[in-house]
């Protein structure tokens, strides 16, 4: 299993931080995806978002990341800018096939103002992959590399879309460890999934065509 190493520096996040969502509605084209979704999340809490295909899990996360505009409703955080405090891990990985793993980490650190030096590739099970082209990695290894973004640049709100996809048992354990440590230092996680998420403290069920 994954060694119990601390991924993050000791300094925590703002423990007063809250994320409030109320009356949120979303439409894609002519289709109403969901309406009147609301929840309230404090620092250190994790929300698991469940729902069938097409029930709007991805749309909800993209709304929270500021990538979509809501049709109605409010999303607010009590401190700072929501977008700049969020990490969004979507279906497409945002990785560049023509960069090496090492370059990807260093660019991630520069682009998200984090620090790559402290990061050990062994932590995501990619020891000795430093010079490997990202395009030659397997799907699961790419997912692991995406997770590195979470560790390299600390941001309080994690928006994870199907985080368990393509990961093996160790990879899932890795996500769990990352998530537990993130929550322990005052982070917040919102994760859409079809499987039970061990770290979730609350859950939201989306049903197709309307409410929870």
């Amino acid at each position: 299993m994954v060694k119990q190493k601390l991924f993050f520096p000791a300094t925590g996040f703002n423990t007063d931080q809250e994320l409030r969502v109320s009356g949120l509605a979303c439409a894609r084209g002519a289709r109403q995806v969901f309406s009147d979704v609301g929840f309230h999340l404090r620092a250190g809490q994790a929300l698991a978002i469940y729902g069938d295909n097409g029930s709007g899990k991805t749309s909800l996360l993209r709304l929270l990341a500021g990538l979509l505009a809501p049709q109605a409703g409010d999303i607010c955080v009590t401190h700072g800018s929501r977008v700049l405090q969020s990490h969004y891990l979507g279906h497409v990985d945002g990785l560049k096939a023509n960069l090496t793993v090492g370059e990807t980490l260093r660019f991630t650190a520069r682009l998200f103002q984090g620090a790559a030096e402290a990061f050990d590739l062994g932590d995501i099970g990619l020891t000795a992959y430093d010079e490997q082209r990202v395009g030659d990695l397997s799907a699961g290894q790419k997912r692991r590399l995406m997770l590195a973004r979470l560790a390299i640049a600390p941001r309080q709100i994690w928006l994870l879309d199907e985080p368990l996809t393509a990961l093996d048992q160790q990879g899932r354990a890795l996500i769990d460890t990352l998530a537990q440590q993130h929550l322990a230092r005052g982070g917040m996680i919102l994760a859409a999934s079809h499987e039970a998420l061990g770290f979730a403290t609350q859950q939201l069920n989306l049903t197709r065509e309307a409410v929870r």
């Binding site: 990341a65 497409v92 103002q113």
Partner: peptide
């Protein structure tokens, strides 16, 4: 390429 591989989403979250 950025649009297709999801990098554009990440750029929208950068400072």
């Amino acid at each position: 390429a950025d649009f297709e591989d999801g990098s554009m989403d990440q750029m929208a979250l950068m400072a």
